[in-house]
């Protein structure tokens, strides 16, 4: 028995290479195909990382420059809309006096000196994914720029140009300056960025919850994601309207000084 089976095994072992090298060839083909698939998958992943980290930024930077250029053209040539609230020195305008911003269109430029002297981003109406690829997004239900209430804006922290990359560096007193073509609005941050859950929509209320503000006012809220590459939380910054000045009087001191 043992002799027989040993002989069979030996003959089988001898039979394999004798059969035209096919079993070995199949194994080689399988190993080669599997490794080729692995290399392909690795290349795909590297390409996707390049896309997310680099290419979205390139596309977003050109889109944001385009939006700012469009706004500046509009402001320098077109008739300037008269009487933005706040420009007249602080009379609260009645609700519904101004038409709502047009969805998906840019209407203001934001400057935050803390993020760099040359940091400027367009603000568009709406917070849809496509809108946030072209700049910062204004929450549609919240107040207009400079109005009583809460002017709330969302932006990417990472990818698409990393507009809010340095968000945690915001400190009380930091200026957030916006212009709509007729008026400069200077908001001042009131506290360090606040970390909350994605469902906490009270942070963009007219009087934001947890902000420390007790009564109605002209507030600004910035929101972005937290942690930097994740989506488990949100990071919030609140500011109040500190001063306004018409564009004819030049840039506000927060930008020049």
């Amino acid at each position: 028995m043992t002799v027989r089976s040993g002989a069979a095994a030996r003959s089988g072992a001898r039979g394999r290479p004798g059969a035209g090298g096919r079993p070995g060839g199949v194994a080689r083909l399988v190993v080669r195909t599997v490794s080729e698939v692995c290399v392909t998958a690795g290349t795909l992943i590297v390409l996707f990382v390049v896309y997310v980290l680099f290419w979205t930024g390139v596309r977003a930077d050109s889109a944001m420059d385009g939006e700012i250029g469009k706004l500046q053209d509009q402001w320098s040539t077109g008739p300037v809309a008269a009487g933005t609230p706040g420009a007249t020195g602080g009379q609260p305008s009645g609700p519904g006096k101004q038409p709502p911003y047009e969805n998906g269109k840019s209407f203001a430029v934001m400057y935050i000196p803390r993020f760099g002297a040359d940091w400027s981003k367009p603000v568009l109406e709406g917070t849809a994914v496509d809108v946030l690829k072209k700049g910062l997004g204004h929450y549609g239900r919240t107040a207009r720029l400079g109005e009583t209430g809460n002017f709330a804006v969302a932006g990417h922290r990472r990818t698409y140009g990393d507009p809010f990359k340095d968000f945690p560096r915001l400190r009380p007193g930091d200026a957030v300056v916006l212009t709509d073509g007729t008026t400069w609005f200077t908001y001042r941050i009131d506290r360090r960025p606040y970390r909350t859950l994605p469902t906490d929509i009270g942070v963009i209320d007219p009087v934001p919850r947890e902000s420390g503000y007790s009564g109605p006012g002209r507030y600004l809220t910035l929101t972005t994601c937290e942690p930097e590459w994740g989506h488990s939380h949100r990071l919030i910054a609140w500011a109040h309207l500190d001063s306004t000045q018409p564009v004819e009087r030049g840039r506000p001191s927060a930008l020049t000084g």
Partner: peptide, 13 residues
């Protein structure tokens, strides 16, 4: 594929 990843979630509503 990119919106399926979490980097787009920057809003609270």
């Amino acid at each position: 594929a990119e919106p399926l990843l979490p980097f787009n979630d920057v809003t609270v509503d």
